[in-house]
Design a protein around this nucleic acid. Sequence first.
DNA 1: TTGATAGGCAAGCTTGTAGTTGCCTATGCT
DNA 2: AGCATAGGCAACTACAAGCTTGCCTATCAA
Lengths: 100, 100
Amino acid sequence: MADDLFKALADPTRRTILDELSEKSGQTLFEICSRLSMKHRLGISRQGVSQHLAVLEAAGLVQTRREGRYKFHDLNTAPLRRIAERWLVPDSSGPEENTS
Amino acid sequence: MADDLFKALADPTRRTILDELSEKSGQTLFEICSRLSMKHRLGISRQGVSQHLAVLEAAGLVQTRREGRYKFHDLNTAPLRRIAERWLVPDSSGPEENTS
DNA sequence: TTGATAGGCAAGCTTGTAGTTGCCTATGCT
DNA sequence: AGCATAGGCAACTACAAGCTTGCCTATCAA
């Protein structure tokens, strides 16, 4: 559950993909591929990117919609909000808060 | 930089350690060990926990202070705030350079 | 129908990393 | 001094994860 989310974020290439989708949503696999190689000089195969997208989708960070032969990818930031709340929120049951 | 942070959070045992330090700060290595095995039924060696703490410290999530033969561990949530902001905020300055 | 484009599946290689075991240092108590 | 406690270091094992290659399916245009 949370495991998928944190593992998805652990890879720098996946974080770059999130950056790209954050900048322009609704990109196809090939569009993401070319941007990674052009803008970020990332030498990675199409299948590599596809696998990263699968991981991001399993984590709920990316949602997809199919239209004809195109598959569009959209960023979903909802899961990210839960991350911060786990430790940042001064929990009622926990004794101390450490803001240092 | 950010790489250390995300990789530190990728492991479920390390996240549990953060939970423990969030509940009670200033714990020693042995204290964390016994809590992991008691409360969380985590069968892990002392050295295993020690290595996890080193990763968390490298990520800036845990700070340590030494007193005599004791080494106390404190949670530092500051790095967590930057995570959410990376994608949650539709940033005005435009997109990246890559911070990973 | 043929060819080109967009994407998927699965096996295999390789590196990274969690975990262990064994031994070593430092502090404190009696 | 002697012993127990708290922690550190290094080598080794085992499994997970990133990435590639090769082949397959689906959609659309000429």
